[in-house]
Design a protein around this nucleic acid. Structure first.
Lengths: 381, 381
DNA sequence: TGGATGCGGTCAAAGGTCAA
DNA sequence: GTTGACCTTTGACCGCATCC
């Protein structure tokens, strides 16, 4: 035995189990979880420590680490005869049922897990982008330290320029995000471009809304610039969109206490819209959407089970009902940008032209898609 | 079990806990005390009696006896993840226990049942309206018998005028439909008007789509006039909307084999949109929506249960995912009507002005709402 | 034939739950 | 907030089959 440390919790390992070096505890935990088709929900931030002393504190994170460590659910065999007691009359199972279903359950966990990974990647990218382009132009006209900006919101008030900048930045991140998704990679380049064109604005608006849950009546742009409801009222053009984001998205999101896994699943569901304009492979896109939907459904069922009496009834439905307003707001934003472009107020670059204004004649994004990652992303004025 | 007496309080023991034979009470007491790092002070002489009847009289002496009996505080582990709900402690008597849930089940059934009644009422109204205004102007310019119209679709091709007429007709029916809903009746007149203004177009489009499931690449207007995809392509204005209704609504609806109960629930969910513009009583509207949502969820769960392996996975989610395209198409229709109105192509009456174009200054619908039914409704056996 | 490996299961003793 | 009867989960330990 070369490796004596459990790859999940660092306890003493007892050998390889289900594909990963692990201790008896993690072995038993994994078997029980798969057998009983359990799906857990993390009550914290999905990065709970999993070690010998804390491995029982969060089953969601423990199972996640089991999967990451390489445990395979199809290594779980069918129940055997009981050792000590009278055996049950065993039924012959037809058609390899249990293995298929345990595989599917597992992939539901994995779907969210993969989406979370893509999300973390993009959040890292975003942080580095914000740092590297710290000199965003605020209305104050002064440059503040990052500390002051973070803790004195009034100093982070967005200018018209910030709005354009944050959209451009988000578009670049969106492309990277999409490229990191396996379901996206399996599409043709044309279909990839169609999905991006058809759904970019919604994804951006959803991101803004989710980022703003902890703010008070204020939305937080991708570059951490802020727009309060009062501020928006002064800038007529964006007034309506900001107000609607706050009323129709941020408030309901807050009521539902949406967490990162909910957000990433919703985002993917919005993105993999099989009736996006000009998409040819309906089945594949719909398949991707259904995967995410099934994962979200499972997660919601689990949450409702735990928080029985809480106001978490119909969670899946209420999450999905965020999408019609999202669609409407994105449409309105597109129109605003269109107007701004016509009047020359906004600085519309090629990517915005293509993904926000959905210019059918533009096809630059395809070259971006085919290229190697465009990271590091730099957004110059 | 050799020793059945708790070494701390002489109650019946349930095994060895933390190193000492003990009862569940002393086990729990020790765990809580250590977890919360409690230190108690004896108010007497540090020799209080600790037995089944007096063990709660002095915590200090109880904890002392726990330690003397051999309980080890390092046997207390860290807090674990929360566990599922506890099974109800089987109420033996015929109290109100199970009825609560069956009552709720009943009300979920009832929600759909009431919606179906309203729907049937409107279908009757529609039939009588179609009959009484049989002279719809077809492109052919001739009047056909109802029989010929029904079975020779090419004869029922819609004119531009038909479109306007069917919209007007549907608006009238929509108001009657809404007025028949108990949840609607409980709102203020202003909120009622807001819901109608904000969601009328979506309801109409949804109705058209549902009515068209059994047609081939053709949508069926409220007055039974038809628009095929090819026909729409010739009439530029409506081309896009018709195409999108077919691709984004009719086809998915067909795939899901939606039935009337699904349709009426979806319709109500669209209608009771709590973030509709200017609605004041968010809670009440959201409550109505949640009722319908819960009913639909229950129905979908039943269907999936019955059709286990069928393609009916994620039915609720897939139904709700019809709504973002519905929202988008309705928005586009509104813009088309707006354009048509500006260019004088369409005949826009006051109700259309108010409910489709969402004219904020118009408030006629309120008088309609307050009045008795505006249509001679005949519902005889 | 026998030890190493990796499936399975068991059940004492941890945990948590929630009406009283 | 605390108690304790009652339930779930954990993991150390063991049996069995397979392979070298």
């Amino acid at each position: 035995m070369v490796d004596e440390i459990c790859h999940i919790c660092n306890d003493k390992a007892t050998g390889k189990h289900y594909g990963a070096i692990s201790c008896d505890g993690c072995k038993g935990f994994f078997r029980r979880s798969i057998r009983k088709k359990r799906s857990y929900v993390c009550r914290f931030d999905h990065n709970c420590p999993v070690d010998k002393n804390h491995r029982n504190s969060c089953r969601a994170c423990r199972l996640r680490k089991c999967l990451i460590a390489g445990m395979k659910s199809n290594a779980i065999q069918n129940e055997r005869d009981t050792i000590g007691k009278r055996k049950k009359p065993l039924e012959s199972l037809d058609g390899g049922g249990p293995e298929t279903s345990s595989l599917r359950d597992l992939s539901e966990e994995m779907v969210i897990e993969l989406l979370l990974q893509s999300e973390r990647l993009c959040q890292q990218l975003r942080s580095s982008v914000i740092k590297s382009t710290e000199q965003v132009s605020y209305d104050s006209g002064k440059t503040r330290s990052a500390f002051a900006e973070r803790f004195r919101p009034e100093e982070r008030r967005a200018s018209i320029d910030d709005i354009g900048k944050s959209i451009r930045q988000q578009l670049l991140l969106l492309v990277e995000w999409a490229k990191s998704l396996p379901q996206f990679q399996s599409l043709t380049l044309m279909d990839q471009a169609c999905l991006l064109k058809a759904n970019a604005t919604q994804i951006i608006v959803l991101g803004v809304a989710y980022r703003s849950v902890s703010m008070e009546d204020t939305i937080c742009l991708a570059n951490d610039a802020l727009i309060s409801r009062e501020h928006a009222a002064l800038v007529g053009d964006i007034n309506c969109v900001v107000r609607r984001i706050l009323d129709e998205l941020v408030v309901p999101i807050r009521r539902l206490s949406i967490e990162l896994p909910d957000y990433v699943a919703l985002k993917a569901i919005v993105f993999f819209n099989p009736v996006s304009h000009d998409v040819t492979d309906y089945e594949r896109v719909d398949g991707a959407r259904l995967e995410c939907l099934a994962a979200l459904e499972k997660r919601c069922a689990r949450i409702e089970e735990i928080a029985m009496r809480g106001g978490s009834r119909c969670r899946l439905g209420r999450l999905l009902l965020l999408l019609p307003p999202l669609q409407a707001i994105a449409q309105q934003l597109i129109e605003d940008v269109q107007l701004a472009a016509v009047f020359g107020v906004a600085n519309v670059d090629a990517l915005m032209q293509e993904l926000i204004l959905q210019d059918a004649s533009a096809n630059n994004v395809i070259t971006t898609l085919a290229a190697t990652p465009t990271i590091p992303i730099k957004v110059e004025p």
